[in-house]
Amino acid sequence: MSFDTLISILDSTVRLGTPLLLACLAGLFSERSGVFDIGLEGKMLVAAFLSAAVAYMTGSAWLGLLAGIAGSMAFSLIHGLASITFRGNQLISGVAINMLASGLTVLVGQNWFHLGGGTPALTGAGRFQDIELPFAAALKGVPVLGPIYDQLISGHSILVYAAFLAVPGTWWVLYKTRFGLRLRAVGENPAAVDTAGVSVVGLRYGAICIAGILCGVAGSYLSTSLAASFGREMTAGRGFIALAALIFAKWRPWYALGATMLFGFLAALSNRYQTIDLGFLVIPNQFMDALPYILTVVILAGFVGKAIPPRAGGEPYVKER
């Protein structure tokens, strides 16, 4: 593998890892507050659709982004209503949200654009353009570091940089703010938080709203930056890979960056090569597609570094009377 190939694979790792990273951080906020969220996929899908649709109609990717966030938030609130207010089963609610998203996006998409559930191609300001960082062109000639700076670090859309900044942001919110302390506490022991006079319901709604925003950005990135239109079922299981990455990362922000980039790397490899020939072994690309899930099952099984979820995860909080 030449240096140029490696750079180009790493470049597509960043592109493919970004939506996973955003969705993973969304899941992190939600699950750290004790609300399981298997509806990441559905929220991303709705956001991807609304972003592309609004960006096409208005010609502005930014308005598309806002619409995507709004759609994702609406689905987050349905999830909150079911799992926080009415203390229903969070997993069932997540399943319903995924189905609702894949049904509604096609139904509405077909009605608006008559393109089999997709949107027309976005052009110009309807997409987030790649940003050229300063001196990228000038430094291009420098050996090794030049191509790394020019191709790998520079030349991504603003959403990619936002996603990478969201990692220290999440870390800071979670570990350095009062909100973060309470958020982590409510995921472990909501009764203690309630006793301290802090609203469990309020904190959890706060967490799922943040998750809604992050999923919205992730979906918007898919249709207005990575691709140039919305296609039916375009999330293609990314929400579940993000969920897998969240477990892989043991619900921690910096680990989430590592896990999502690892899974992004696997996706990049599988996109580039039909099979990987190691000489003694030929790996089909279907195996690369399945690898994130297999790795997650191994981690869940606890054979290599046990992943322990937030203790109150999945349990609706019933106030004692």
């Binding site: 349905i78 209503l81 079911a82 799992s83 009415f86 203390r87 229903g88 089963n89 969070q90 069932i92 609610s93 399943v95 319903a96 949200i97 995924n98 189905m99 609702l100 894949s102 049904g103 509604l104 096609v106 139904l107 077909q110 559930g117």
Partner: peptide
């Protein structure tokens, strides 16, 4: 895909929003 919507709503109301 209308059926997916109906199905999702059935799951939502009989499962998650049962209360």
């Amino acid at each position: 895909q209308l059926i997916w919507v109906i199905q999702a709503l059935v799951i939502l109301f009989t499962g998650a929003l049962d209360n």
